[in-house]
Nucleic acid binder design. Structure first.
Lengths: 231, 231
DNA sequence: CTGAGTCCTAACAACGTCTTAACGCCCGCC
DNA sequence: GGCGGGCGTTAAGACGTTGTTAGGACTCAG
């Protein structure tokens, strides 16, 4: 249930700096894009919509502040400026042009990463989507660990819930007995095929309209079970 | 209708620095508040809800990071840390604790003002949030650290309160035992699952109508606890 | 030193969950 | 038509988890 790792765009012309930052960013688990010119940076930003942009002001083709001005016309992603120039006037200009932070070279990897985390935190509030699975009269909120049937909350025990979301993960497909036992009971020993029958019964009673004539929690005789999805 | 000029809270003990910043901030047209200690800073923040907070880490009464931790329990206002310590590790720690920016002394007035403008830009969209949580007969003022039940103030001990607002922060979602212990007790060792049971009992006695039949502070057996929200 | 307040710990009671077993049903096969 | 295997259903006991209470250790202020 982990979100895909955030994508960072680096706009920087010096190869040495690029290498250094690539290592730092990929090491921290970010997806990584790079551009050597302002124009290329703008193109990549438009194409990939990165969550954070690192922008060097000293680019060969256009002024860094112009890049930012263009970016800001349509893009809200936080921009962290990276520059060799530490003059206060430069910082003020960049920040007032829309930069969210300004780092003067040389700087340490861990500070950069911390400032990227701050930038992501700012961008986050809009990006917090809840993973919810709906099917027929059911509504399963994976984040809240809550199951609703016709808007009514239904309580599932830990094993019931685990079995249920295992079927949801493979919704539509048949899941074999063996696979279910492994994923829910964790590969421990025992006369376990019986467990499945017991727990499927319980699930059907809690979730199905007619437990004896299940609409969704279907048996695949001799193979396993399957959560039917609408077609 | 012109918005009133933003209010800035400065938490700083050195008189000289205070004088310097007062001139800078008032000169820039901000309304201005100052506190010489962490405690005073927290009180002023709760009373006045400033748009930006400037926080010196070297305070006489408490650690600057503790001030931030307390602040962040209820307050989303951007915090710009001002510190004499320029070590990278200090910066990273402060930023990860919730600071939005970190300035090392000495710094120029215009850079500070530019960074305040950035902070205000960030704060603007979601600025209208009241740090008050209400649910059923409860009313929790996160800024004042005050809990009312049917308008009656109820006293919670520090740990009770921390546990309670942790559940509030994840309202509706199940919070696992492990997560609660980590967030409330801070990952220290011990036979801790018991703590949760004891403190949940106490919370229920102070907050629920029928402590033995809790309406909101619900147990999710085998998993954790959850603050039920109306649906 | 005393008292108030808070936190941790231990013991026991109460509860929910998991496992297990027994039985009934349906269906295909001999 | 009888038999057996796979599946569904139910209930009951074992087991672990959770709720509750009370007492002792500790800190802090007066």
């Amino acid at each position: 249930m982990t979100a895909p790792s955030p994508q960072v765009l680096l706009v920087e012309d010096e190869p040495q700096m690029r290498r250094f930052l690539r290592v730092a960013l990929e090491g921290a688990g970010y997806r990584y894009l790079e551009a050597a010119t302002g124009q290329e940076g703008l193109n990549l930003a438009a194409q990939h919509r990165p969550q954070v942009i690192l922008l060097d002001l000293g680019l060969p083709d256009m002024d860094g502040l112009d890049v930012m001005a263009h970016l800001r016309e349509w893009c809200q992603a936080p921009v962290i400026v990276i520059s060799a120039r530490g003059q206060e006037a430069d910082k003020v200009k960049a920040l007032d042009f829309g930069a969210d932070d300004y780092l003067t070279k040389p700087f340490g990897t861990s500070e950069l990463l911390a400032r990227i985390r701050v930038a992501l935190r700012h961008a986050d509030p809009g990006a917090a989507e809840e993973p919810v699975f709906t099917l027929g009269r059911w509504r399963v909120d994976l984040a809240k660990r809550q199951v609703l049937v016709d808007g009514q909350e239904v309580h599932l025990t830990p094993l019931e819930y685990k079995l249920f979301i295992t079927l949801i993960r493979h919704a539509g497909k048949v899941v074999t007995h063996r696979q279910l036992l492994k994923e829910v009971w964790g590969g421990v020993a025992g006369a376990q095929p019986l467990y499945l029958r017991v727990y499927m019964t319980q699930l059907r009673h809690k979730l199905e309209l007619e437990p004896s004539r299940p609409t969704y929690l279907q048996t695949e005789p001799g193979v396993g079970y399957r959560l039917r999805t609408e077609e």
